[in-house]
């Protein structure tokens, strides 16, 4: 092979390793620098692209930072009222059972105002994928304390750290839904390092494939950062998350599907 002398000789279509997927639009993301939302959008878009589901996907966007999700993903999206994304997704999936339906929610949406919808949709075993971004704070409204704020964590409404005696205990939503019989696959991941992004992508691909089997709800929690709400730089916030959030919210699969013969695991014919 000819010796490579310049960078221009490497930048050729045949040498391409990684490129932004076409399922993401060209709009600049509205998230703060370093926010995990962008990474999760991107890996979700890559999975939709690789599984060939772009025309069959319907997303339900929440109220919160990800409210403008439909501007960034080139798929069909429906906006739901605050916390009601699982209820809207239930309706969509029941009317259009051939579509792949997912909800994308933050902790203020899924674990605070929408707790009832989340738990009941999971308990009914709706065939939807729920993506839960947990950054332990109400990021969009100025960093107030959320149900998922960990003990001792500072926020604008708990400036001396969350005191469990006064403010109550944090809610581990993923642990709760893992105990419900309606969920099929429950996992907790993060996106702060390349290895974790790859692991999250693998988990998300599994969840998307399980949706085709119609066996129940899949639930992915992604422990994420909020540099603006935590008043840190993105790199500092990732480090803080690794040292404080991840010991409290340990990563890994909380519920994996039961063993089944491979012949049962083929997608149902349309």
């Amino acid at each position: 092979m000819a010796e490579i002398t310049g960078i221009k000789e490497i930048i050729r279509p045949e040498n391409l390793v990684y490129k932004r997927t076409k399922v993401m639009t060209d709009n600049i993301l509205s998230y703060c620098p370093g926010c995990g939302h962008g990474t999760v959008h991107r890996i979700l878009a890559e999975i939709i692209d690789e599984e060939g589901l772009q025309s069959e996907t319907i997303g339900v966007s929440p109220v919160g930072c990800a409210v403008l999700m439909y501007n960034f993903l080139d798929i069909d999206c429906q906006e739901a009222a605050h916390g009601r994304a699982p209820a809207v997704a239930t309706g969509i999936k029941r009317l259009l059972p051939d579509k792949f339906v997912f909800t994308y929610q933050g902790d203020g949406d899924l674990a605070a105002i929408g707790t009832a919808e989340t738990i009941h949709a999971c308990n009914r075993g709706e065939n939807i994928l729920m993506i839960f971004i947990n950054n332990g704070i109400y990021g969009m409204t100025g960093g107030q304390m959320a149900p998922t704020t960990i003990p001792g964590m500072r926020s604008s409404t708990s400036p001396y750290g969350r005191d469990v005696k006064i403010m109550g205990n944090p809610l581990k939503m993923t642990d709760i839904v893992a105990t419900l019989p309606g969920t099929y696959y429950v996992t907790r991941q993060s996106v702060h390092t390349p290895a974790n992004v790859r692991r999250t992508k693998k988990a998300m691909r599994k969840a998307v494939q399980y949706q085709k089997l119609n066996r129940g709800a899949c639930f992915i929690e992604i422990v994420s950062n909020c540099p603006s709400g935590w008043k840190m730089t993105p790199v500092e916030s990732n480090k803080w998350m690794e040292e404080n959030m991840i010991p409290f919210y340990p990563l890994g699969d909380l519920k994996t599907p039961p063993e089944e013969p491979a012949s049962n695991l083929k997608p149902e014919a349309k």
Binding site: L16, Y18, K19, R20, T21, M24, I28, L29, Y31, P33, G34, C35, G36, H37, G38, T39, R42, V191, H192, T193, P194, V197, R198
Partner: peptide, 9 residues
């Protein structure tokens, strides 16, 4: 992989 804005090719 880690770029939140997907700007790197």
């Amino acid at each position: 992989m880690v770029c939140p804005d997907g700007v790197i090719t």
